[in-house]
Write a protein that binds this DNA or RNA. Structure first.
Lengths: 349, 349
DNA sequence: GAGATTCATGAAACCGTTTACATTCCCAGC
DNA sequence: GCTGGGAATGTAAACGGTTTCATGAATCTC
């Protein structure tokens, strides 16, 4: 394929001039520019962006490192990042499924020179050393970090407050025996949600140590068995806060097949507000988190950091997680057929 | 940051030697290698991959061009691509939301030199010219192309057969008035699904021109209004094939609020088998498509094309779309609490 | 012990750009 | 007619690696 030299030779100019034409430099006469463009079009010349990156030290690319890709959450994060990246004409380089620090470093290494900044959601045990080794050479924004260390930029979701709000809601509804299905131990989100649960109970004058906490792993089957376990408990809880929606789905399935009424016999609140939450029976009351915005804000932070590195205001953003009240906790419905439609249909029946 | 030159100087060798050490060349003595590695570790030297790409003409990166990023389908495609890419140690460079040929070309251009191959899902009007301009310089695999032109590699989903199977199923259940909610005109998938519908009816001796076909746009609200429209139709259909699950969700909501029984009054079959399909009431019978495999196979094709360009066997794969029978068409349930659990719970009630 | 062979290493070209600096040309100003 | 300056363009040095080829030392062969 044609390189800048081919174009230069054919147009009878130096490669510097061709480069200038392609970079819209004003220092080139209109005639020459036109001639160069014509030759370039004829050759269908595309500049090699690896070479450009090398000289300019800019790639217009954002690296994205995620622990996994499965499920709505990550795909929304990516979509959020992409939406901002597109707006600012950045590309995205994606890498996922990093189990340990070694793999994270490998991935970051292989991106070096090809990205202008890195957005990283580390697995739960990302060491400070890993972070600092990366940060020394590439601007870094952390997504949902375990600890909000002040020396780096980060965007995270306020799991703690979200959980607290959810449990407060149940308390306000009059529940006295509130159980929790917790997430996997060691997981940052799971810990924070548990902390919110505990805190809400304490504030209400309960002793959190009395509360039933069933250990889950964030996945549907563990919610199913948690449901069975809870129903075997004496005395039974009257409400349960489930650390994520996947487990809530499993739990609801268990309750249904056991003939337990929701919310009548047991009020249920989830966390995440996944797509299916509103389609469940009953529609699941849950804590909404906005993964799209998480990604978008992180990308925004990155881009402004790249474009003005002088103001190294390494700040952290915490996005709210807000309770979405539906039916599974005891609340009102809403549907959307107009009365006119309804009559018209019934008439024809 | 340290470059190869810094390491070479400090280790007292030439840059060629350092390069050899990092590429595991056997042509370097153990002593030297160890010394170089030590210096590299001390400097925390990371090779610049842009420079590597430039010289080797290899980037170990796959470009991915998608029209959009929203929803399960695309995220599963990406996950499939990623799973194979990881296994083969490739990175992924992602770009989305390309409305027209101009944007596709821009995206491809900006990847030139940084990717070894491109996986592209073109919007419906991708011109052959666009494809060939890209293909001239980068190995290309098309995802779900509009036409299976034999001169390029592609992986697609057999929408036609899937739709045909779905409608055949409804016919076999004895339905005589089968309607369809179609997808947006001009959309490849929508067209193929409509074609399958028509074909199945013809084969069964019906005149497809008599069938009610309501135009939709693949989104939930259009399914809702399609539901209302269908119920207003005289005579009413007894079954409906909906061109995707999103619309089927809207349709079911409409039916529910109208008091129409599913499958009793109207049998419903969707397409896509999205996550929520099995959580709907009734669980939605639908045609399952495997976006993960779509991405994975495409990536596989790409990698083998890169690694052995000589066998330019530009073949096309068509993945099956298989009917997943649930309740919305009239079929049997299945739940999963053991009898023992059930008894144990009931005893304590 | 001389010539052949192997092995480790270095020198330098190259990949395709950008860009600092040099050069040329033209023209206004005195 | 000379000078100075600015506009258009060219020259060549980067950027950070890989790789070909040359070189020299050590080992082998007979």
């Amino acid at each position: 394929m044609a390189t800048i030299r081919d174009v230069a030779r054919e147009a009878g100019v130096s490669i510097a001039t061709v480069s200038r034409v392609f970079n819209n430099s004003s220092l080139v006469s209109e005639d020459t520019a036109k001639r160069v463009m014509q030759v370039a079009a004829r050759f269908d010349y595309w500049p090699n962006s690896a070479a450009q990156s090398l000289t300019t030290n800019r790639s217009n690319t954002l690296g994205v490192l995620l622990p996994d890709l499965f499920g709505e959450f990550y795909s929304e994060v990516i979509r959020g990042i992409d939406s901002l990246a597109r707006r600012e004409s950045y590309q995205i380089m994606l890498s996922s499924s990093h189990a340990d620090n070694e793999e994270i470093l490998m991935a970051a290494r292989s991106m070096l020179g090809r990205i202008d900044g890195l957005l990283m959601m580390a697995p739960d045990d990302a060491s400070a050393d890993t972070v600092s080794r990366i940060q020394r050479r590439i601007p870094l924004v952390l997504l949902n970090p375990a600890t909000d260390s002040p020396q780096n930029c980060s965007v995270s979701i306020d799991n703690y407050s979200g959980a607290r709000e959810a449990v407060n809601h149940l308390l306000k509804l009059g529940h006295l025996r509130i159980a929790m299905v917790a997430g996997p131990q060691g997981n940052v989100d799971a810990n924070e949600r548990l902390r919110g649960f505990t805190q809400a109970l304490s504030e209400a004058g309960h002793d959190p140590r009395d509360a039933i906490v069933v250990q889950g792993d964030f996945r549907e089957p563990s919610g199913f068995s948690a449901g069975i376990e809870l129903m075997n408990h004496v005395p039974r809880p009257t409400a349960v806060f489930v650390a994520n929606d996947s487990m809530a789905v499993g739990l609801l399935a268990a309750l249904e097949s056991l003939g337990v009424e929701v919310p009548g016999d047991l009020a249920v609140v989830g966390f995440d507000d996944v797509d299916i939450a509103r389609y469940l029976r009953p529609p699941l009351t849950t804590v909404h988190i906005d993964a799209f915005t998480l990604g978008q804000r992180a990308a925004q932070m990155m881009v402004s950091q790249i474009q003005s590195p002088e103001k190294k205001a390494s700040h952290s953003i915490k996005l709210p997680a807000v309770l979405k009240i539906r039916r599974s906790c005891g609340a009102q419905p809403n549907w959307k057929v107009t009365e006119r439609d309804k009559k018209s249909i019934i008439a024809k029946k």
